[in-house]
Design a protein around this nucleic acid. Structure first.
Lengths: 185, 185
DNA sequence: GTCTATACTCAGATAGAC
DNA sequence: GTCTATCTGAGTATAGAC
């Protein structure tokens, strides 16, 4: 199993059970390596494992979201739509929670807080830039961008709380519709 | 300190640090009682403490939200507005997270899952009923009700993730505006 | 790089005096 | 009802062989 595959597994475990809720024994089982082997790959222990998952998500965001949004070859609406498609994928149609949300809500210490804050901000900012291209003024673009992330996050919370992935999928569709309407003004 | 005051403290600790992230020593410090004394009040241990917090929230929802929504003396919009005011209060203007969301996202076991699901469902249903009174058809009322909770939950996640309570407060205001528009059709 | 074995700390939980 | 003292297990982490 490659390092990247290991990190993907870490991501999946942490976002399902949270940081405190995930034990090294559990990780050891999922990955199929002894605890000692895990420490070979991640000398910093559990904290480094979670950081690796967050770093992986950062690069995922860059490659699968931010890059698309900045691609000025495609029209703004198409870029936003492409983003939503990748959002659907990464959250497995609402079946898998968001690591950022999970770690944020746990947030006893602010071990991961700074990084998550930056990442979320970059995402929001990138959407806002696209909305401005459509012709929305800066403040409104910021608000609408934040609102989109709010709805994604909220629907992921409820998808889990209500065992209802429809709600997530409907939210994504509504966002697409909303972006389309904005684009046609 | 009365039993109710203790439970309120439990609620606040659990929603700040999560279930797994909260230790009995920590609880002991916050409440000002030894661990043994805590077991006197909650023989079922930590799990019973969290259940007590959830039960308290259930009764809070009944008294401060559902009761208002059902009060047919007031016009529908006023009831929805009153709900939003209490939502602002209970989440301390976005400074305090939602215990339902925290426990849901942690959700290793489904110890609390069933109860949370029921509670959230009751809330959504109660809003939907009010929206139907306004004249919205059943399906749309359900969707719009879910959307309101989605936005509340999402803005609470981001309020924490971005250290930005403005976002929560703006969301509440937007919901009020939206309810008002619906009421005036 | 992977393992077994082990150290050490802190978690949740109990016993029993007052 | 509250405490001090203690138990037991699980948690993170390390040592050292292969």
């Amino acid at each position: 199993m490659s390092k990247e595959e290991i990190v993907v597994q870490l991501l999946n475990v942490f976002r399902q059970y949270g940081y405190d809720g995930t034990s090294l024994s559990q990780i050891s089982q999922v990955i199929g390596l002894s605890k000692a082997s895990l420490y070979h790959h991640f000398p910093g222990g559990k904290e480094e494992m979670a950081t690796a998952a967050l770093d992986y998500l950062d690069s995922w965001l860059e490659a699968n979201i931010l890059k698309l949004l900045r691609n000025s070859d495609a029209p703004p609406f198409e870029r936003l739509k492409a983003m939503l498609e990748n959002v659907e994928l990464v959250f497995d149609q609402g079946r898998k929670p968001c690591l950022w949300a999970v770690l944020t809500l746990e947030g006893g210490s602010d071990r991961f807080h700074t990084q998550i804050k930056q990442t979320l901000s970059r995402w929001i900012e990138a959407i806002a830039v696209v909305l401005q291209e459509i012709g929305i003024d800066a403040e409104q673009a910021k608000y609408q961008s934040e609102d989109a992330i709010v709805r994604i996050q909220g629907s992921l919370v409820l998808a889990r709380g209500l065992d209802n992935t429809d709600l997530f999928n409907r939210t994504i569709k509504e966002l697409a519709t909303q972006f389309l309407q904005i684009s046609c003004v």
